[in-house]
Design a protein around this nucleic acid. Structure first.
Length: 418
DNA sequence: TTTCTCAGGGTATACAGATA
DNA sequence: TATCTGTATACCCTGAGAAA
């Protein structure tokens, strides 16, 4: 998550609430180093809307010039990959041109100008779809350009033949097998194409590809990615060049270690976030909710409280989501290590478990324990004394929380002083 | 070897409910 | 009552992998 991105998204004005939710979740998925590549299924789940609705909002955002979609295909398999979403605050962003731009689309929504141009209806219902529409991939299927697989790097000619003439084919073969040996998920797969691409690289690039392989694999792991691209992709796209300059094995171990889901460090990061005041998008009542409040079905304070639980701490919700749906953890924060030491395991369904659930409800915090995929044992703050020395599980939980809060406060003070 | 299903991406259309 | 909005469904592409 990038705070710059989410802050930027929150500041945008003149968008429909649902569209803003989509923008906010896109920003939430944005990574400063690697950009924004969420699948539509994930985004739709995040935004609690169907994929079709999501696409409508994405289109609106694109028309507003707030995002730009860049589709890509795997150079080896031609399979469509996750679309990259460029956000308008990113360096080098240029909005996608649309036919709609020919009309006066009005000012872009921004903090300075306030609302955009409302003179035109948002609905496009009166614009009948046209088979000639260039924007429609459905209507132009037969003309969709299909790129041939990348078999030669684009700069091969410019580089000249000198580099790979300098190495004997035997040496190149030896180096190639060194590279692909033990490559994850490659057992039994044909490697001729990868070798062909490898041979096209300069000697220097071949050495770099081999030298950077392990660091690149660690980088993928630290990003929580299950899939490891094939050697062909690694070589043809020269993916080792995407490794951030400050990312190395030592650094990765120190700063990029992944905190296991529901573990001590994961819990410390989660509770540290809950120590903040709610910071998600300000909840608003829908018109239906306003009517229910007016009819006395809901108390406004209670309804607002429920909404805060679901959107007050977006990072915590993302942690839950990733942990439960994908079994992914999060990047460790070494500064919180002392907090992680305060944690102990709590069994699902135990008295302590119920007490923790109660404390979450009391404080209006999101709780993850109801999900059926939640593990049977989860690390939660431990009480200073044995649990049976307290009058009740609730007292033990309060004591554990108090100790955590004290420790968290001193860490925050120390960080502020530094 | 062929066929089918799935998963990734997208748009078009009809419909129901909400709103002005 | 017309218009807007969100959703479901249908349809299209690609390649991978399983089954026949």
């Amino acid at each position: 998550m990038s705070h710059k991105a989410t802050n930027w998204a929150v500041e945008q004005r003149g968008l429909k609430p649902a569209t803003k939710v989509v923008l906010w979740h896109l920003a939430d998925r944005h990574n400063r180093e690697f950009g924004c590549f969420p699948s539509q299924a994930l985004l739709a789940h995040d935004c609690e809307m169907s994929r079709a609705s999501l696409n409508n909002h994405l289109k609106l955002l694109e028309e507003r010039g707030l995002i730009r979609r860049i589709q890509s295909r795997n150079s080896r398999t031609f399979k469509q990959e996750n679309t990259r979403y460029l956000l308008a605050f990113e360096d080098g962003f240029t909005p996608q041109k649309h036919d709609d731009d020919k009309r006066d689309a009005g000012p872009l929504p921004c903090p300075e100008t306030g609302h955009g141009n409302d003179a035109e209806p948002v609905s496009k219902n009166d614009e009948k779809p046209c088979p000639k529409n260039d924007d429609s991939r459905v209507q132009n299927l037969d003309t969709n350009p299909v790129r041939e697989p990348v078999t030669q790097p684009g700069n091969a000619q410019a580089r000249g033949e000198r580099d790979f003439e300098a190495r004997s084919s035997k040496k190149v073969e030896k180096l190639f097998w060194k590279l692909v040996k033990d490559w994850p998920q490659l057992h039994g797969m044909p490697k001729q194409r990868a070798r062909s691409v490898f041979e096209q690289l300069s000697a220097e690039e071949q050495d770099q590809a081999i030298a950077k392989r392990e660091v690149w694999l660690k980088l993928l792991k630290s990003q929580g990615k299950d899939h490891v691209p094939a050697p062909t992709t690694y070589l043809s796209q020269k993916l080792w060049k995407d490794i951030p300059a400050d990312f190395d094995l030592a650094g990765e171990q120190a700063a990029q270690r992944v905190a296991a889901p529901f573990g001590k460090m994961w819990g410390a990061i989660r509770f540290a976030d809950l120590m903040r005041e709610p910071y998600g998008p300000a909840p608003r009542f829908t018109s239906a909710e306003e009517r229910m409040v007016a009819d006395g079905i809901y108390q406004p304070a209670e309804l607002m409280r429920q909404k805060l639980v679901s959107c007050g701490w977006p990072r915590v919700n993302t942690l839950h989501e990733r942990a439960i749906r994908k079994k992914h953890g999060t990047t460790e924060d070494p500064a919180l290590a002392p907090l992680a030491d305060l944690f102990g395991q709590v069994g699902k369904g135990s008295e302590l478990w119920s007490a923790w659930k109660g404390l979450h409800a009391e404080r209006g915090w999101p709780w993850f324990g109801e999900d059926r995929d939640c593990p049977d044992w989860v690390w939660l703050p431990d009480s200073p004394c044995e649990a049976d020395t307290y009058d009740s599980a609730s007292d033990a939980v309060r004591a554990a929380m108090a100790r955590f809060e004290n420790q968290h406060a001193s860490i925050s003070e120390r960080q502020a002083a530094e």
